[in-house]
């Protein structure tokens, strides 16, 4: 992927808040990132760190209220998605930006055949005739590796296994040749064997179709195998972002470092005792005034309780929001 290429998606200072009976929940706090054509950006972090809400904010899939986008912009192909009206968003969603969620059963409609659900976007967004759409739908099912594709168009979602349903979801997401595919934990509910099938499929589709992908997961193993770049989220913030190899070989943020150490290894040396991150992730009732990871951090400095660190580049393309410097073991000097 060319480094200097114009981003296809450019998100700046996104803030999303939920207004709940218990008060405000600050789910996304000044998130900025970009996505370049054809690249796969991995997004990792524990549950509640704001991964899904960030992506849903972009494509207008959050219920408002309770959600409210307080600020930010998200430029997709010259257009600010956060300012776009419903019709514009609807036209983009499912056509130029495709998405796949963790549980295909919640996004597939149980009362319509898979063929109908595949043909609908083709007719709506691409203006295809019924016959054209049917032919293309069969092609798509075949593309995602469903045997006997043409015959299966008339089957309902429950007639497919979990792995096959996820393939159907991917086929629907790809129907209109999107420039961007957002995949939110697409393999989390699947067995490793089926996950391996889906990952191979996505790698193969990328080679063939060349769309940019945002892949959300909490599994660092999955990320290592597919991502070009990774952003690590915590407390609704991007705490680190780096090319995939650099993130694993030279993690800077104590949270990234801890995450890498708490997962037991399948093939490497077996540790007698697992490393832990004490405590649990925060639910933020207010925008973080200090570093949100500080209460769980083994390296917190005095300053971390007073200020929320800004994200700074430690090397080109590698940014971290942390006052602590792993190289010196003391405070980072810009």
């Amino acid at each position: 992927m060319p480094d200097g290429a114009q981003p296809i998606l450019d998100v700046r200072d996104l803030k999303t808040v939920f207004l709940t009976r218990g008060g405000e929940v600050h789910a996304v706090n000044d998130v900025s990132f970009d996505l370049r054509p054809g690249e796969l950006l991995g997004v990792v972090g524990e549950s509640g760190s704001g991964k899904s809400v960030t992506m849903m904010s972009l494509i207008g899939l959050l219920p408002m209220p309770p959600a409210e986008i307080r600020s930010g912009r998200a430029i997709f192909d010259g257009l600010d998605l956060l300012q776009a009206d419903d019709d514009t968003l609807r036209a983009i969603r499912g056509a130029r930006i495709g998405f796949v969620f963790q549980d295909p059963m919640t996004s597939l409609n149980p009362v319509f055949t898979v063929g109908f659900q595949l043909m609908e976007p083709l007719r709506k967004h691409m203006g295809m005739s019924k016959a054209q759409a049917r032919a293309r739908a069969a092609e798509l099912l075949d593309l995602v590796g469903i045997p006997d594709a043409a015959a299966r168009l008339k089957d309902y979602p429950h007639q497919f296994s979990g792995g096959m349903r996820q393939r159907v979801m991917i086929a629907i997401a790809l129907a209109c040749d999107p420039q961007v595919l957002i995949a939110d934990e697409p393999t989390t509910a699947l067995d490793v064997t089926i996950q391996a099938q889906i990952i191979e499929l996505v790698k193969d589709l990328r080679r063939k179709l060349g769309m940019a992908i945002v892949w959300i997961t909490h599994d660092l193993g999955v990320i290592a195998g597919i991502a070009d770049r990774v952003m690590v989220m915590y407390g609704g913030q991007v705490v680190e972002q780096a090319p995939v190899r650099e993130l694993f070989s030279d993690p800077q943020h104590p949270y990234t470092r801890a995450l890498l150490q708490t997962v037991p290894s399948l093939r490497g040396k077996r540790a007698e005792r697992l490393r832990v991150i004490e405590g649990q992730p925060p639910v933020l009732g207010a925008p973080p005034a200090a570093c949100p990871f500080r209460p769980r951090c083994g390296h917190a400095l005095e300053r971390c309780g007073r200020e929320n660190p800004r994200r700074l580049a430690v090397r080109p393309g590698h940014e971290v929001a942390c006052f602590w410097d792993p190289a010196s073991g003391g405070e980072r000097h810009a």
Binding site: T193, Q197, G221, A224, G225, R245, R267
Partner: peptide, 25 residues
């Protein structure tokens, strides 16, 4: 096959791993 399917949290290893991909369910 089961062990082979587990992804490695190591991008360098991932780049060279040949997986046994089981077909079907």
């Amino acid at each position: 096959a089961l062990l082979s399917a587990v992804p490695d949290p190591d991008p360098a290893a991932e780049a060279v791993t040949e997986r046994i991909i089981l077909e079907g369910d």
